[in-house]
């Protein structure tokens, strides 16, 4: 029985060799798998928004309308005027727009003092809020509640219209605070 094992190995080796020589066992991309999609199918899913505004839909929002939307959908978790709720505090600035978070763990990060891009607000609210029923807000409602939160953070004025043109131009206080991961350089003392 033992002597059969090497024999079986050599047979299976020969089979592998033959398959390899037949030339059709190497898959070369593209394999022609998957199906082509229409632009309408892409549009139905493609809801992301970039900092340059790419992806923002038609429509517009106002601070006043945003206050109503906020009261209906957001206030129960995020509190009156974006503070004091059971979930993330959304409103708050730090004098001189300082950025003390690295040295002071007691400071609360908010849209006004930490978020670098206003477009992220629209993208995130539209995709994920309100938490228990994301997707219920219309684009106008998302624009409006975005406008309201920017207003509460004293980043835009009360009469600002927020739309695909204006939102990417809103400059956030923490815009220049972010650096791409530099640990391999700044924490190189941990390397032998």
């Amino acid at each position: 029985m033992q002597s059969l094992i090497p024999l079986m190995r050599s047979i299976s080796g020969a089979v592998v060799l033959v398959l390899a020589l037949s030339g059709n066992s190497v898959a070369e991309a593209p394999l022609g798998l998957g199906r082509a999609v229409e632009q309408t199918e892409i549009d139905a899913w493609d809801i992301d928004v970039r900092p340059d505004g790419k992806g923002l839909p038609a429509g517009q929002g106002t601070v006043a309308h945003g206050e109503q939307v906020y009261a209906q959908y957001c206030l129960s978790c995020h509190g009156e005027a974006g503070k004091g709720g059971i979930n993330d505090q959304l409103v708050g600035r730090i004098p001189f727009d300082a950025f003390p978070f690295g040295s002071d763990p007691g400071k609360t990060k908010t849209v006004g003092n930490y978020w670098p891009y206003a477009t992220t607000l629209f993208d995130y609210i539209r995709r994920a809020m309100p938490y228990s029923s994301p997707g219920v807000l219309s684009n106008e409602e998302v624009y409006s509640v975005t406008a309201y939160l920017l207003y509460l953070n004293r980043i835009v004025s009360q009469d600002t219209i927020i739309d695909a043109d204006t939102l990417p131009t809103v400059r956030m206080p923490a815009r220049d605070r972010f650096v791409i991961d530099d640990r391999t350089r700044t924490e190189s003392f941990l390397r032998q």
């Binding site: 978070f101 972010f178 791409i180």
Partner: peptide, 8 residues
């Protein structure tokens, strides 16, 4: 602590 935030 230097007033920046590391991203990615």
């Amino acid at each position: 602590k230097n007033g920046t935030a590391r991203q990615f």
